[in-house]
Every structure is written in structure tokens, then in C-alpha cells.
């Protein structure tokens, strides 16, 4: 049974069509890369799946439920593209905040990651550098034992060494029943991690394929293929 399913989903903002009849499924145990140029609909696609937006037409199912319902919130761990936690809180307060909100939150995992990345739990969000804020948010999101992780640009602001740590953390926390959808421009960095890639172009799905199958058929990396498909 798919963890995430889009059926002919269209989303319009006034006259602007952000998503145009997208159908796709994500199976359990899959790590999927959501790739596309700026403004191609990646963030809209993710926001629809966690119920922050409602589709203009079409249907979305998360673990067979409508997004946005309490049952679906309990299954989905979402990392928004922007900072979405109160900036006066410390890292420690945030861990407790998440613990209170989510029954599947694993405090031990969160503490371990904070310590691995040398983040002082007493630091307030507003005192943190941009990269550290991103790390803290990602730690909170990945510390949940969710069925579906939706990560919108999770590694954009962090240095390459931390990027490696974060990606290996995603693997280490990997649960064969769960699925991860990552939207990113840093294709070369995440490529080895992905089972599948989805290419979005002007709100339309242009490709959904297995990474290794693509590399075999095209004889090039996904990064190289992306540059070819979306050549300006």
C-alpha cells in the first residue's frame, strides 16, 4: 500500500497554475528526490501532502487518509522550507515541545544528534546561525518515528561535512515501512541516497524513475540529466 498518493492533483493560486494534473505514488521504504527548477511546484506538492494547502482538484492520500486530518498529522513529519519554530525557544525547549506534540518523538535520538553536531541545547533559536537553525529543525523532524518524511530543501544552508552527517542520519533512521520525500537542488549530494527521482517542470510531472535505471539507460548521473532536461 502506498504511503503517499496523488491522483490528478491540480493546484491554482488565482490565475497561476502551480500544479497541473500530477499523479504519482510513493511506496513504503522509498527515498524519493523531488527535483525541478525554481517555481516548478515542489513546495506546493509537499504542502498539499501535509494539509497546509488543499488541492483545486484531484485527490491526495497519505497512508490512505486525507492530508491534514489528526490521523495523518500523526504519520507525517514535515520540514518546511522556512523556519517554523518560535525563535525565543532554546534547542532544549524545542525538544520538549516536540515531545509534547508528537507521540512518536524519540528524545534519545534528538539528544544524540544535537550532541553529534555540537549544538548547545541552551542556545536560543534566534541566537543560532542560519546553518544551525536548519540543523535543529531537521533534527526535530527526523527524530520522529513517522511513516512519511517530507523534507523541503533540508540541506541547502549547511556545510558539506554536516551535509554528509545529515544524509547518513537519514539512512540510519531509515525505517523500511516509512518513506522520505526530499526536495532539493543539491542533486549530486543526495543522488546516492535516492531510490527514485521525480522531475517537475512548470507544475507537471515530467519523469518518475528509479535512479539506477536512469543511470543505466542514460549513462549519466541524475545531476547531469537534470542539467540536460532543464537547460536554460
Amino acid at each position: 500500500m502506498p504511503v503517499l498518493e496523488y491522483k490528478e492533483v491540480t493546484k491554482r493560486y488565482g490565475g497561476l497554475t502551480a500544479l497541473d494534473g500530477v499523479s504519482l505514488t510513493v511506496e513504503p521504504g522509498r527515498i524519493v528526490g523531488l527535483l525541478g527548477p525554481n517555481g516548478s511546484g515542489k513546495t506546493t506538492l509537499l504542502k498539499l501532502a501535509c494539509g497546509l494547502l488543499t488541492p483545486t482538484s484531484g485527490e491526495i492520500l497519505v497512508c490512505s487518509q486525507a492530508p491534514g486530518s489528526p490521523a495523518s498529522h500523526a504519520q507525517v513529519s514535515y520540514l518546511p522550507e522556512r523556519m517554523a519554530v518560535p525563535d525565543w525557544m532554546t534547542a532544549k525547549q524545542l525538544v520538549h515541545f516536540y515531545q509534547d506534540f508528537y507521540g512518536d518523538f524519540r528524545q534519545d535520538v534528538a539528544w544524540q544528534m544535537l550532541s553529534d553536531l555540537n549544538i548547545d541545547p541552551a542556545l536560543r533559536v534566534r541566537e543560532m546561525s542560519k546553518g544551525t537553525r536548519e540543523k535543529v529543525q531537521l533534527i526535530l523532524v527526523m527524530s520522529r518515528a513517522a511513516m512519511l518524511y517530507l523534507l523541503d530543501e533540508p540541506i541547502g544552508g549547511v556545510d558539506p561535512a554536516t551535509r554528509d552527517y545529515i544524509l547518513s542520519t537519514i539512512i540510519a533512521n531509515y525505517n523500511p515501512e516509512a518513506a522520505v520525500v526530499i526536495s532539493t537542488h543539491l542533486i549530486a549530494d543526495v543522488e546516492k541516497l535516492l531510490d527514485q527521482v521525480i522531475f517537475l517542470k512548470n507544475g507537471q510531472l515530467v519523469l518518475q524513475s528509479e535512479v539506477d535505471q536512469l543511470r543505466e539507460e542514460k549513462g549519466m548521473s541524475v545531476d547531469a540529466l537534470f542539467r540536460e532536461v532543464f537547460k536554460c
Binding site: I31, L167, S168, I171, A172, K192, L193, L194
Partner: peptide, 9 residues
């Protein structure tokens, strides 16, 4: 994790 690749792969 060590190789930085997908577990399925």
C-alpha cells in the same frame, strides 16, 4: 550509512 547510499541499493 558508511557508503552514503540508499539501503535498498
Amino acid at each position: 550509512g558508511e557508503a552514503g547510499v540508499n539501503p535498498n541499493t
